[in-house]
């Protein structure tokens, strides 16, 4: 078993990653390895660069420095093994597509240009919708859904991607309690099936229960590891509290400098 893990590349490996916005670093020198089959939460205060880390890893933002490896290779090679759940606000909910259409988009990565999703893809999409208990709403326009239902549609789309590594950007933001519980169940089930899931999370009070590994982030990496080791008052204080890091001062002055 041990040998197996050492030869297989980890799903996500980040080395010295820096992302700058207006020349101001929003992420600085991040080193991170996410082991296979883990359920990892990224936590940190507002503006810590949690979503930025996700977008940078997915190639949605240009890197100022460092590199990212997905399953030991560049993202483009393993795009099919990578699923993504963006923030809900990132799309126009008046767009003329229904729930089924959106879930089918999860299959698009498996289809070459010019090919439409077929019967098999529809079956997968239906199964994924059923898994998040949204099948009865399949024909609804996406604008006529509650916040929690919209999140479930995005999750179903990610499931339909049938990936091995998932990135989710604040899936718990603004959803009802029932949806939150459903998402947690889903995450655990995915983990049980051997998937690796990385979740940006804003709620410190639930982080310990939901995830088995945590990444504490505040512009730079504060700590990463099993929840039991990382979720300590000391490290949390370092992440959230006060102005312990000289870096944040430096960052501030970099931003003001012309």
């Amino acid at each position: 078993m041990m040998k197996d893990f050492s030869t297989t590349a980890p799903p996500l490996e980040v080395h010295d990653l820096t992302v700058a916005y207006d020349r101001r670093p929003v992420l600085y020198g991040i080193d991170l390895t996410v082991p296979a089959g883990s359920l990892t939460g990224i936590i940190g205060p507002n503006g810590a660069g949690k979503s930025t880390l996700l977008k940078a890893v997915l190639g949605l933002l240009p890197l100022s420095a460092g590199w990212v490896k997905i399953f030991g290779g560049p993202l483009a090679q393993n795009a099919r093994r990578t699923g993504y759940v963006p923030q809900r606000e990132s799309v126009d909910w008046d767009f003329p597509v229904n729930v089924m259409d959106v879930v089918l988009m999860g299959r698009y990565g498996h289809l070459p240009p010019g090919r439409r999703p077929g019967r098999a893809d529809r079956e997968i999409a239906r199964a994924c919708l059923d898994q998040v208990q949204m099948l009865p709403l399949a024909r609804r326009q996406i604008g006529n859904l509650s916040g929690g239902q919209r999140q479930r549609v995005f999750l179903a789309r990610a499931l339909a991607q049938e990936s091995d590594l998932y990135f989710m950007d604040e899936p718990f933001a603004g959803v009802d309690a029932a949806t939150e519980a459903a998402i947690v169940d889903l995450l655990r089930e995915m983990k049980a099936r051997g998937k690796t899931v990385v979740v940006v999370h804003h709620d410190l009070s639930t982080a310990r229960d939901y995830f088995d590994r945590l990444v504490l982030l505040n512009v730079r990496l504060v700590a990463a590891g099993p929840t039991a080791e990382v979720f300590t008052p000391e490290l949390l204080q370092k992440t959230y509290g006060g102005r312990l890091t000289i870096l944040s001062d430096v960052v501030q002055s970099l931003g003001e400098e012309p």
């Binding site: 207006d22 507002n46 949690k50 977008k55 012309p258």
Partner: peptide, 13 residues
């Protein structure tokens, strides 16, 4: 050089 910025949708957070 001073005003290099990302397009709006890319802006972090």
């Amino acid at each position: 050089p001073r005003r290099a910025a990302f397009p709006g949708w890319m802006a972090p957070n």
